[in-house]
Structure formats: C-alpha cells, structure tokens
C-alpha cells in the first residue's frame, strides 16, 4: 500500500471508535444541555444549575480540594520520583509498592479511609487504646467540616499520587546523566540541580502528570461520596444527583459541560505555563 496513506489507514479504526463512542455522545450531551423544555435552544439548564444554592458550595469545595490536593501530590510525587531514580537496587520493587493504590478503585479507596475515620474505625480504636479519648468520637460529621475535608484530601493523596509518580519517574529517566555531571563541575548544588536542571527538563512530563491529575481532581466523586456523603457537595456529586435523584438529565448535561469547561481551561493554563520553547527539548 502507498506509504503515504498507510499511516492514516492504520489510525482509522481508533479514530472511528472515538468518533462513535466519544464525539457522538458528547454532541448528544451538548444538545441536551442547551435544550429548553419546549425543545428550542436556550441557556435554561445552565441558569438552573448555577442558581441552585448548592452550586457555589460544590464549586468552592471542588476547587479547594484540587488546590490543596494537587500541589501536595506534585511535591510528593517529585520527591518520591527523585528518590526512586537515585536507587540502584530494588528500584522496581519500591515502585510496585508505591503504585499499589493505583490498582484500587476510587470508591474502594474511599471505603478504606472510611474504615479508618468512622466512629468504630481504626483511628478511634487507636486513640482509645493509647488513652487519648474515653469514648469513640464521630469525626465525619457536619460539626467537623475540616476533618471531613482532611479525610477526603488524605484519601485522594494516598490514592492518586502514584499516577503522577509513574509519569515523573519515566520523565526523570529521560534526562541524561551528563547534565548532572556538568552541573556538578560547574558548581550547582544538589538543590540548584533540581531547580535548574531536573525541573525544567521535566516540563513535558509535568504537563502530562498535572493535566491528568487536575482533570481527575475536578471529576472527584466516589471518595467524597464515601467519606463526606452529602456533607461535602462537589460538582460531580451534583451532576450525579441531577441525573439519578432528580431525573433532570438536561441539568446533569449542563453540569457535565461546566466541569468540562473548567478542565479545558486549566489544561490550557498548565500547557501554557509549562511550555517548552522550540529547540529547547532534550
């Protein structure tokens, strides 16, 4: 076959698959979101979801979670990736252990942390055992919103740092050793080597890791449902309740598009901040 056409033929099945199962439903959802009760085009659905009293709260909660969780994950993943990359023996073993949480679904992760924080959970047993509390405390209530927030943040950090770690370990592996030797000879301390060499050369991997993580952070749902229930409304939880509790698929579609819009916005910001100038890649 013609070598110029062959590549396009080869990517055709995937393209068709994505068109059929992604673009088509996306068009349908968009239609639903912009459709009024009488069938015409309108912003009714958007107006409805935005004006609902829970919308600002769930928006604030989602953004706050992302703002706390993602930077902590980034710092942890960078630290862990740097440590793993310096290891000579047992590196794969450590990586496997560190990535175990990746294999657990987000709902299961939420339930694991619920088992720690709930009234009859491990944390209470431990505190009781060492005599800090006389009787089990209910941490996850509306009286302790910050503990609920903390529990969700911890569960998210525990669950999803590994995805960034894996991407960053691969990225660090691509940086040639000579750069560090040159940096050593030309007087850069270890910290300067990290800020002046590792970090800038890691930009492509950081882009991927951050885009993935930020999108997932805006889609947070199951962990919140398990630990916070209705105490901690988030955008995705609202979408779910429009669709399945209120059976208002128009409003659910509008919510979904709002989340998509936010994700695209942040993706563009991340790509812009971490862009690599032409000719400046490894």
């Amino acid at each position: 076959m013609n070598a110029r056409i062959l590549p396009y033929v080869l990517i055709l099945p995937v393209t068709l698959f994505l068109c059929l199962f992604f673009i088509y439903p996306f068009v349908l959802v968009s239609q639903q979101a912009f459709q009024a009760a009488d069938g015409g085009w309108s912003m009714e659905n958007f107006q409805e979801v935005v004006e609902y009293w829970k919308f600002p709260i769930s928006m604030k909660n989602t953004l706050l979670l992302a703002a706390i969780v993602v930077p902590v994950q980034l710092a942890l993943a960078l630290l862990m990736a740097t440590m793993v990359s310096k290891m000579k023996k047992g590196r794969d073993m450590v990586l496997y252990i560190w990535t175990i949480p990746l294999g657990i679904s987000d709902l299961a992760a939420g339930i694991i942390w619920l088992a720690i924080f709930e009234q009859s959970g491990f944390l209470n047993s431990m505190l009781h055992g060492i005599g800090v509390v006389d009787k089990p405390v209910n941490f996850l209530t509306y009286q302790n919103p910050w503990i609920v927030f903390l529990a969700i943040a911890l569960a998210e950090i525990w669950r999803a740092t590994a995805i960034m770690l894996v991407i960053l370990v691969a990225g660090i592996g691509l940086i040639p050793k000579e750069y560090y030797e040159a940096a050593d000879v030309f007087g850069a301390s270890k910290w300067k080597q990290f800020t002046r060499i590792t970090f800038p050369l890691l930009r492509p991997s950081l882009q991927t890791a951050l885009v993935l993580r930020v999108i997932l952070a805006f889609e947070i749902f199951a962990v919140v449902a398990a630990l916070g229930g209705t105490l901690f409304p988030v955008l995705m939880g609202q979408t779910y309740s429009y669709q399945f509790d209120l059976l208002n698929s128009g409003a659910a579609a509008a919510m979904a598009l709002i989340i998509l819009g936010i994700s695209i916005g942040f993706t563009l910001i991340i790509l812009r901040i971490l862009r690599v100038p032409k000719g400046a890649s490894i």
Binding site: P176, E178, P200, R203, A280
Partner: peptide, 10 residues
C-alpha cells in the same frame, strides 16, 4: 564532555 552536555532548556 564527550556528548557536550549543553543544557537544552537554556
């Protein structure tokens, strides 16, 4: 250095 080790991002 043999492979120059010229920093690509600078």
């Amino acid at each position: 250095f043999q492979n120059y080790a010229v920093f690509p991002h600078l």
